[in-house]
Amino acid sequence: MLRLAARAASALAVASALALTATTPALADPLVLPAATDIVGVGTGVTETLFTQFSTDYNAFLAASGDTTSARLFSWDSAGTPSQVITKAGATPIIRPDRTSAALSALNATTRSTLDFVRTTRVPNANDLPGDLFVAFAKDAVSWAAPAGGNAPQNLTTSDLSNIYNCRVTNWKQIDSALPDATIVPVLAGHLSVDRSGVTGAPMESSEFLLKAINYPPAGTDGPSDRSCVRVVERGEQGWDALLHDPNAIVPYSVGHYVGQVYGGHSRPGDDPVTLTVRGIDGIASVNTADRRISPPFANTSYGRWLFNVVRQADWSNTSTTNALHQVFGTTGWICRNPTAAAAIKSYGFLTLPVGACGSTRHA
């Protein structure tokens, strides 16, 4: 009863707090303020709708089993209003992180009284703190998308993509003489600047991944060539920007997120491919349209990627919190072993990991 009363009070508190700073609520943020002991995360937009579903399903699972004491699971979207959010009862307000790097900074600048995990689409790198523990849970892939009925072909090679984003190839006829005589419009998503030396700034995860996959040289390291042909949109995994309606536009795209949007029915305003369709690379289709999922041969190329949740190593190992985190994210936890979680992963377009791989951990 005390927990239920606390949640009712929390709901009133968050409503009051948000009313002071917002006019429009985010699309799928928690409907009540999570309790101080709940498991709360932020991070990449690629898996945020899946985690909204996880939250609903996991909390219902606990309720159905009569469990009124275990920590509930909640996830905040990467975009929306207010821009400053109170993530749980008693938390320090934070600016809503819109990508992995910003979310990790928030995780490392706070304690579990504010955040417990970060959604991410990338493996650890040398810039991550040793205390950031990456816990695997599913698999995705990154390809490129273009408007249906536009001038882009169904397949580009890695070399084609490198030449396009480095502005060495600027016309479709340079790819194939049978293609239209039209200027290619390469697009990236993120907080980016572009000039003759190339792209700088903070790309969204799928754009960052594709640039690494095609060995895009850092700005200023590719000699005197002009690499200013790249255009920029703020958000990834969407086709709403007018720039992406150009029949010659191409943009990096999470294949799993696309499958969830198109085949799983998990799209919403601003989170919808609109006319974009995901294409193949190096002769391998990215989507198995018959099975309505990521093509396993494509996922097994260098364009495949694992999906993780990042927790603090200290929280993961702490006996006062380990049960709550492991109960959700561990190798025998709900995400890795519950059939409802597996169904959600597939419905939202991603591939499940084998037993033992799901819930496995790694450091920078």
Rank of each mutant, 00 (worst) to 15 (best):
D222N: 10
A5R: 13
C229Y: 10
L211F: 13
P147F: 04
N338W: 03
I184P: 14
T158V: 15
T157R: 08
R112W: 09
S10W: 00
L62Q: 12
H266A: 10
T319A: 08
P186C: 06
V287R: 01
S177Y: 06
W240D: 14
L73N: 08
A343H: 05
V199W: 15
H245Y: 13
D271K: 06
L4S: 11
F308M: 02
A364G: 13
P218Q: 11
H191F: 10
A341N: 08
V310S: 09
G304I: 03
A60V: 11
L2S: 09
Y253N: 03
A8V: 05
A145W: 03
Q174L: 05
Q53I: 13
V185R: 12
P25V: 03
E48R: 04
N155H: 14
I345V: 15
A19Y: 11
R293M: 15
L18T: 12
G80D: 15
A342G: 01
Y303G: 02
A148Y: 13
A103F: 03
D77L: 08
A141Q: 05
R279F: 06
L27D: 15
P25R: 09
T332P: 01
F117V: 03
E237S: 04
I281P: 02
D271I: 01
S113L: 14
D140C: 04
A11D: 10
D140E: 04
P97D: 06
P147L: 06
R279C: 00
P30I: 05
R312F: 00
L33S: 06
L4M: 11
T331G: 03
W240T: 14
D222C: 07
R293Q: 15
Y303C: 06
S101K: 02
S286I: 10
T100M: 02
G190N: 10
T275I: 12
K173W: 00
A102I: 01
A152C: 08
K346W: 09
P34A: 00
W144M: 01
T44L: 07
A89D: 12
